[in-house]
Structure formats: structure tokens, C-alpha cells
Design a binder for these strands. Structure first.
Length: 918
DNA sequence: GAGCACTGC
């Protein structure tokens, strides 16, 4: 929204915004979603300066209007709020502008002080591991003391002394022991000097007295400078929820585990709906269930069905999008039923089948059910299929929808339950021929939401300010910040630490915990350690914290509203990660993360009404080669008219068909070939599975499955910490040293074999800057692939010294990914008019080979080939004579792809014809 | 010299 100076327009804009918020709320209420959720509040930009008045900036204020009209009806109140808000708003802006002008005069002085501060910081960083000489030491201490003195005189009301936390070691890492010692020391000092009043309390009181303008409703006190929170009276909501919560835990002590479990089951919200639910399932073949968080649907519904006798007809299968979810839910249910996990209740995930003949309630990942469908197309052993978390729309669930919908038609006895969040329920119902929607209320704590109307210029800066404002004005509880990626998390961490130095030691310590999936496991574990008493944990997380893992103790969420989304461009065959605004659904999910263990608060740095309702489903932005092969294997001929809930882009399907045809998995009629049938056994990308199948000819299947496993793990094999990049790179290059040029594929093979030679040592991984987690995963995948080789009758043969044979096997799957060196050092794809570059992390970077085969293309700052290996051009013709002709390798002029496109089109026409015949 | 959201089989 554009800011205008016209006050009337402002009011109108604001009113409009209010209306839309109300409407959103109303629609939630229809679905009984908003029971405990408070209305979204607005918080505004903290205009005040932070260095020069760090304390004054957190002034408690109280707004008159909110004290008056408790009983006024909602609309009236809002109108009033918004007009007063506007008056206050412009007054406030004028005042703050004046302040800001005055500050400008002081700027020079301030800058001097800042320069001094920077010097101190630099010194801390530069001294990196080097012991200071005595003279330097004295000089440094002098600077420090000088700065502290200035700080003290600046803040005349400052009761604390400024101190650089000495918990930081030379690398800027935190020595936790030292830091906690500091915390403890500070607290004991305070206890004696302030007679039991904590520093925080004293400071808050002090600030409260100083406040000039007061506002905030009478029940809500804390308001931070610049952030104007617009509050409603929420007391009743808060009470309601806490009542429910205490009820749940009442009388649960000193009971046996089984009794307790049963009692807890009966206290779940879903319990009241049990009979009605069973009746509906009996009467309707497909049922869409909107089960809110905390309703107990995932654990209870399968048990109800079992009690009602459904397991006599067959198993109850419940899919989850994540492995851990499948495992933990199964374990919980086994415990509730008092059976051993893997007996009546079990789970099945890749690499781990914890089920037996007895198993009647089976939790599994969605991909696992998809695999099962390949061998059991009618799902005969199941009586009920529950697709949980359907709203997440993973690639696998989207395909499952279509398949189970089909199966349901031929199996009237099969029951389908689709469990979804509110927003998509209607869509699911429509897709499943107007299936009934049944709503089960959840139970959770209220989450207050604050939002900013205008998008941020520098959201990281606002995030950091908000962290400190929460830290200094809100009661205990940890803070969770959603950021987009590793780099941003690292930046935020540095900034937070610097700001901590700036602000001195106000209040308690902040413990910063980063978490993202590429972080080594040992470091990930730290995020779950509770913060020491009196300190506050600030978790900087990627999307991993949105659904995949839950951190206890989070009470505040700061959500800038962005995440990275992978999208595949079928035209160029390139993947890229884009920073994208999140969807409304994601925003809700993120906010909910603050209300898991108690009432929470969520600070949104955006306006939720600017967001799309849901994220684009994965099926519309993924490489579909694997999907198409799976569907073909299930006998689905016509991809273009397949009943997808959201159809993937047509050119993505076309591209996938083209590729599968080129690989020989499909014949000219679009039917599965023998090769295709072998390929589909391997749960990897079709090019990889073709490579594996092709390795039989070159007698190097042992090497090839290793390479395939290493490539499947992704690019998280090599660990490259920020401060040891040179060492890490050197360690990596060790795997490339040889008499002849070694490509990335061969290097990966060597990494694996070296690891195997040292008996899969974790220590070896550390020493070589390799992530042991990734290596273990590669071993799991390799073991699985080896088993499947056996299944399709390919012998495991090793041919370690014939690199040419290995390269030829790679080409058997990856021949479409060929590139030729250009005069300017760039590469050009042989069959596509596309310029590409060797990735700087490749061993072949800076050591050009004329012809390359690459694993994948990624678009970052340039079009990069990731994982490249040298090859000979004549191999292309030897291995893929149907794809390459002599003229392709004689001159690397871009070739027309017309012929292949035509072929693909005939495929499409053929399949259409077939469908018409049927 | 670039930069790796997150899952899943």
C-alpha cells in the first residue's frame, strides 16, 4: 500500500484494511478455526534510533481509547480505534521527526564513538587466535575502558557498566561455559544490590515511570517504542484456553502409563466426535477431515477404526509426508494400545520396515505407499487409507490422490480419509466428487499476531531490532526467527552478536541457536537444549522449523515472510532456488509455532493479505521424469489427461516423456520397455537408474551404484565451514589427485571407497571435511541399490581401474547432459542452444576439458553444471546413436531439437488415440 | 570464485 499524506485517505486505507482483516477472521470462524486465535494486530516501524537511545526506545505507553470502550460493539470500536490511531500516528511521526533532526546534529560525536566501538570489535576479530603483545593488550584495554566511559556518560540513567561479553572466543564463537559463568555472576551481583528485584523488573519499572505517552489496553501493558500494537480485549480467550489446558493435565499424576494414556485419549477433542465420525466413515467412501492442530486425529482415527472392526477386512494405512512423523506417531499409538511397536502397530519408511504379519495399523511415508502401489495396484491388503497432512501437497501425496481415487472406484469397500488443514478442505472435497467435509476442532494456545502494513526495506535489520525489543520487554520464552537460508542465518547471527555488544548487558543473556538441515547433527542438537535459567534462546531457523521439527519453549515468532523455493524450468532443464514470499497457509503454520506450550506472539514483517493463499504445489514446479515413469509403470498411458488435482505444466510432462523416450524407458508408442521396467525398480532419478542399468554392460555396477548413491545424497557431502574454507578445499582436492584428470563422479567414488577403507570412520570424516551424516545416508542408499540390482538380476561387478568403463556407464544415463568447451572458456550444450559453466566447486573448475558430461544444471549467479566428468565425444555416438549423429560432435553448432519434439508430440497423439479407443 | 529451502523413494 502506498503511504499518503492525506489523512483522510490514510483513514480510508486503514479502514479498508481493517475490514479485510475482519473478513478473513469471519471466514475462519465459519470453519471454527479461530477459536483461540486473536485478531491480527499491527505493529509499526520503530522509527527511533537504536545506538544513541537504546533504553528510551522501549517506553511503555497506554492508549486512552482502549480504556474507554470495553463494551462497545466490535465495529464501532474498530472505527474509533482506527481514527484515533491516525491522529496519534501523525503526531507521533512529527515528534519522531523532530527527534531525528536533533539526533542529526549529534551525529558527528556519535560517529566518533562508533568508530571507537568498531575498532574494538575489529581488534577482537583480527586478533583471531593470535595472542596479543603486552603493549597491544594495554592499548586494547584502554580503548575498551574509554568506550565504556563514554557509554556511561551518554546514558546518564545507566546503572549498568558496559562490558564486552568475554564469552566470545577469537573466532567469534561462544564459549558457553564462560558465558554462563558471566550470567550467573551478574545475577548474583544483582540479587545483592537490588534486594531480589531482577534487573529486568527494575529496568521495566524505571522505563514505565519515564513514559510520557501511555497506551495499550488495560490488560495488555507492554508496548514498545515505534511498534504500536493495536490491541483488542482478549482476556476471555486467554482464560478459555488455559482452562482447557489445565483440565487436560488434571489428575494425571501417580497413574500407570496405560491408564494415563487412556485418560489422555479421552480428553482429546476428537473423542467427543468418535461415534459420529465412525458413522460418517461407514456411510461415505471418501471423507475429508479438517482436523486442527492438537485434535488428535492422526493418532486416534486409526484406533477408532480398529476398534470398529475395520482391521478385520484389511490394514489401516496412514501416510505422512515425513519419516520422523511416521515413526513417532506409530510409536505413540503402539504405546497407547499397549502393544509392541512393529506388531499390531507399525511403520514403514525407506531403509526401515518396522511391520510384521500382525500389523494392522501401519503408518508410512507417502512415497512408501506409492512404491507399494507398484506391486499392489488395488491396495488389496488395506481396508482404509488415510492421507494425512494432505494440504502440504507433496509430490507423492498429489500422485497418491489420483491413484487412490481410481482405486476407490473399483473397490467400493475401501475407505478413504483425506486429512487437511482448513484452507484447502473445499478443494479436496471438490476433487473427490464433493466428498463430505468433517471438522474436528483442535486445541492450542492463543497466538497474538502483529503485523506490519508495509513491506520491509531491510527486514534483517527489523528482525534484529524486534528480537531485542521482545527480549527487553516481554516475559520469558524463547524466540524463533524464520529466515531463508544458511547464509542469512549466519549474517543474522553475526549482527545479533554485534548488537549485543552495542547494547551492553541489558537484561539477561541471549543464546543464539542456528538451525538448518545442512548443519552437522551435533550442532543441530544444540537447538533443543533449554536455555539456562534467566537467559533467552533465539533460534534462527529455515523452513525446517515450520513443519519438520518442533522446538519446545518457543513463545515468540518473528516471521519476515520469505522462504526459498526450488523450481525447475523444463525448457532449460535447470533448477534454481528462489526467495519467494510465503503463503497464508505457511504464515499460519509459522505463527502456530509460538503457541505450542503456552500463549504465544507472532510478529509478522508483512501484511498477510498480500500473500497467496497456498504455496504452488510441488508437482507444478518439479522435474517430472521420475513421476511419469512411475505412472507409466502403473499402466497410466495418457499423462496429459490424467486426473491430477492440479495438473503439472504440459511442457514439463512433454520434457519428461522426451527424456524417458531418449533413455529407452518408453518406446515410440509411449509404452514401457524392458529397460523401463528395470529402471522403475530403483528409487532414484531416471537418468541415474538408467546409468545403473547401463552399468551391466561395462561390468562396473559396484562402482556405479556407489556413484549413484553419492549423487543422490546431493551436494551436502563436503563440509565447508566459513572460517576453514581453504583447509576444506584442500582436503577435497586430495580426492582428485592422480596421473590422469579426475572428474567429480570419480572423486565421489573415491571419497566413498576411502571412507569404506577406514571402516566407515566418523573421525575420518571430520579430518577430511566430509559430513558423516551424508556418508551414512549414501551407504544406506547404496545398500538398497545393491539389493535391487540383485532383484532385477544384474550382477554386482567391480571394475575399479577402468575409468573409461565407468565413464561410459555414466554416459549411458547422462548422455543428454553433454557439453562442449567454447573458445571463451564457457561450455555449450551439445543438443541445446544453451551456454553453461563449470561450477566453481567442481574439481574441473579452471582445468578445462573439451567435452564434459554433467549431473545437473543449477541456476544461481550463472548457469552452472554441478558434478562434471571428462569424456570422449565418440562415446556419445557409441552409446546413444539414436540421439547423437556424427555432425553433432564434429561442430558444436546448436542443433535443432525439432525432431525429438515431434516424436514427443506423436507420443502424445498416440496416447490420446488410445484413450479415445477405450 | 560461488553460495547448498525442505522433503521423499
Amino acid at each position: 500500500m502506498e503511504e499518503s499524506n492525506d489523512p483522510e485517505k490514510k483513514i480510508l486505507d486503514f479502514a479498508e484494511e481493517m475490514n479485510s482483516t475482519v473478513q478473513v477472521r469471519a471466514s475462519y470462524e465459519n470453519l471454527d478455526e479461530d477459536r483461540f486465535i486473536t485478531e491480527e494486530k499491527i505493529f509499526r516501524d520503530p522509527v527511533s534510533v537504536r545506538f544513541n537511545k537504546p533504553k528510551n526506545s522501549f517506553t511503555k505507553r497506554r492508549r486512552k481509547s482502549e480504556e474507554e470502550d470495553d463494551d462497545a460493539d466490535e465495529d464501532k470500536k474498530k472505527a474509533k480505534l482506527c481514527s484515533e490511531d491516525m491522529v496519534l500516528d501523525s503526531d507521533e511521526i512529527i515528534r519522531l521527526r523532530n527527534v531525528s533532526r536533533q539526533e542529526y546534529v549529534k551525529n558527528r560525536e556519535k560517529k566518533k564513538v562508533e568508530a571507537l566501538r568498531d575498532e574494538i570489535k575489529d581488534e577482537i576479530m583480527v586478533s583471531d587466535g593470535v595472542k596479543l603483545t603486552e603493549k597491544e593488550e594495554i592499548e586494547f584495554r584502554y580503548k575498551k575502558e574509554l568506550y565504556e566511559l563514554i557509554k556511561q556518560t551518554e546514558d546518564d540513567d545507566d546503572v549498568d557498566e558496559y562490558r564486552i561479553p568475554d564469552a566470545y572466543d577469537q573466532e567469534g564463537c561462544i564459549d558457553q561455559k564462560k558465558r554462563f559463568a558471566v550470567v550467573a555472576q551478574r545475577y548474583s551481583e544483582r540479587r545483592s544490590s537490588m534486594r531480589g528485584v531482577t534487573e529486568q523488573e527494575a529496568w521495566e519499572d524505571h522505563q514505565a515511570q519515564k513514559g510520557t505517552v501511555r497506551f495499550g489496553s488495560k490488560d495488555k501493558k507492554k508496548v514498545i517504542d515505534g511498534y504500536e500494537f493495536v490491541f483488542d480485549d482478549l482476556a476471555s480467550f486467554v482464560e478459555e484456553s488455559s482452562e482447557v489446558k489445565t483440565g487436560r493435565h488434571r489428575g494425571c499424576y501417580s497413574r500407570t502409563v496405560a491408564e494415563k494414556a487412556r485418560e489422555e485419549r479421552e480428553l482429546l477433542p476428537i473423542h467427543a466426535y468418535r461415534d459420529e465420525l465412525l458413522k460418517l466413515i461407514e456411510e461415505n467412501q471418501v471423507l475429508v477431515i479438517v482436523g486442527e492442530t492438537g485434535s488428535g486425529k492422526t493418532t486416534q482415527i486409526p484406533q477408532y477404526l480398529q476398534e470398529a472392526g475395520y482391521t478385520k477386512r484389511g490394514k489401516i494405512g496412514c501416510t505422512q509426508p515425513r519419516r520422523v512423523a511416521a515413526m513417532s506417531v506409530a510409536s505413540r499409538v503402539a504405546q497407547e494400545e499397549g502393544v509392541k511397536l512393529g506388531h499390531e502397530v507399525g511403520y514403514s519408511i525407506r531403509f526401515e520396515d518396522c511391520t510384521s504379519d500382525k500389523t494392522v495399523v501401519k503408518y508410512m511415508t507417502d512415497g512408501m505407499l506409492l512404491r507399494e502401489l507398484l506391486t499392489e495396484p488395488k491396495l488389496d491388503s488395506y481396508s482404509v487409507i488415510i492421507i494425512d497432512e494432505a494440504h502440504e501437497r507433496t509430490l507423492c501425496t498429489d500422485i497418491l490422490f489420483a491413484l487412490v481415487k481410481d482405486v476407490a472406484k473399483v473397490r467400493p469397500d475401501l475407505r478413504l480419509i483425506i486429512s487437511s488443514a482448513t484452507l484447502e478442505a473445499k478443494k479436496f472435497s471438490d476433487y473427490f466428487d464433493s466428498a463430505r467435509i468433517y471438522l474436528i476442532p483442535g486445541r492450542r494456545y492463543p497466538v497474538e499476531k502483529f503485523f506490519r502494513r508495509l513491506p520491509e526495506v531491510d527486514y534483517l535489520e527489523t528482525v534484529i531490532r524486534t528480537v531485542f525489543q521482545i527480549h527487553q520487554t516481554e516475559p520469558t520464552g524463547d524466540i524463533l526467527v524464520f529466515l531463508t537460508g544458511q547464509e542469512e542465518i549466519e549474517t543474522a547471527e553475526t549482527k545479533l552478536k554485534l548488537r549485543m555488544i552495542d547494547l551492553g548487558t541489558k537484561g539477561s543473556e541471549i543464546i543464539i541457536s542456528p538451525i538448518y538441515s545442512n548443519l552437522p547433527t551435533e550442532l543441530q542438537a544444540k537447538v533443543f537444549e533449554p536455555a539456562p535459567k534467566g537467559s533467552r534462546k533465539v533460534v534462527l531457523a529455515t523452513n525446517i522449523a515450520e513443519t519438520s521439527l518442533t522446538i519446545d519453549g518457543i513463545r515468540y515468532v518473528i516471521d519476515p515472510g520469505y522462504c526459498k523455493i526450488n523450481s525447475y524450468n523444463p525448457r532449460t532443464g535447470m533448477e534454481s532456488l528462489l526467495v519467494t514470499p510465503i503463503s497464508k497457509a505457511s504464515a499460519e503454520q509459522r505463527a502456530g509455532r509460538s503457541g505450542r506450550t503456552g500463549p504465544g506472539k507472532c510478529y509478522r514483517l508483512y501484511n498477510v493479505k498480500d500473500l497467496e493463499p497456498t504455496t504452488i504445489p510441488e508437482i507444478q514446479r518439479a522435474n517430472l521424469a521420475s513421476v511419469v515413469l512411475t505412472l507409466k509403470s502403473l499402466g497410466i498411458q495418457d499423462m496429459f489427461n490424467f486426473d491430477f488435482m492440479d495438473a503439472p505444466p504440459e511442457n514439463a510432462l512433454l520434457k519428461a516423456l522426451e527424456l524417458l523416450y531418449a533413455l529407452g524407458a518408453l518406446d515410440g508408442n509411449g509404452e514401457m520397455t524392458k529397460v523401463g521396467e528395470r529402471m522403475v525398480e530403483f528409487p532414484v532419478d531416471p537418468m541415474l537408474s538408467k546409468m545403473i542399468v547401463g552399468s551391466e554392460k561395462y561390468k562396473c555396477s559396484a562402482e556405479i551404484i556407489t556413484i549413484a548413491a553419492m549423487l543422490s545424497v546431493g551436494n551436502s557431502i563436503f563440509y565447508r565451514p566459513k572460517n576453514q574454507q581453504v583447509l576444506a578445499d584442500n582436503a577435497r582436492m586430495n580426492f582428485y589427485v592422480d596421473t590422469e584428470k579426475v572428474g567429480d563422479h570419480i572423486a565421489l567414488l573415491r571419497v566413498y571407497n576411502s571412507w569404506k577403507d577406514v571402516n566407515y570412520s566418523t573421525q575420518w570424516c571430520y579430518e577430511n571435511y566430509i559430513q558423516s551424516k551424508s556418508m551414512k545416508r549414501a551407504r544406506d542408499i547404496r545398500d538398497q541399490l545393491r539389493g535391487l540390482l540383485n532383484k532385477i538380476g544384474i550382477e554386482l561387478t567391480s571394475n575399479p581401474n577402468d575409468l573409461d568403463a565407468i565413464k561410459k556407464a555414466i554416459l549411458a544415463g547422462f548422455f543428454p547432459h553433454s557439453a562442449k568447451l567454447q573458445k571463451d572458456g564457457s561450455y555449450r550444450r551439445v543438443k541445446e542452444p544453451q551456454t553453461v559453466y563449470v561450477h566453481p566447486n567442481s574439481g574441473l573448475f579452471g582445468a578445462p576439458s573439451k567435452w564434459l558430461v554433467y549431473h545437473e544444471l543449477v541456476l544461481t549467479t550463472k548457469e552452472y553444471m554441478r558434478h562434471t566428468t571428462e569424456m570422449k565425444p565418440e562415446w556419445l555416438i557409441e552409446i546413444a546413436p539414436h540421439y547423437y549423429k556424427l555432425k553433432d560432435i564434429e561442430e558444436s553448432q546448436p542443433k535443432k531439437t525439432q525432431r525429438r519434439r515431434e516424436k514427443a508430440r506423436t507420443l502424445k497423439v498416440d496416447t490420446n488415440k488410445k484413450k479415445a479407443k477405450r
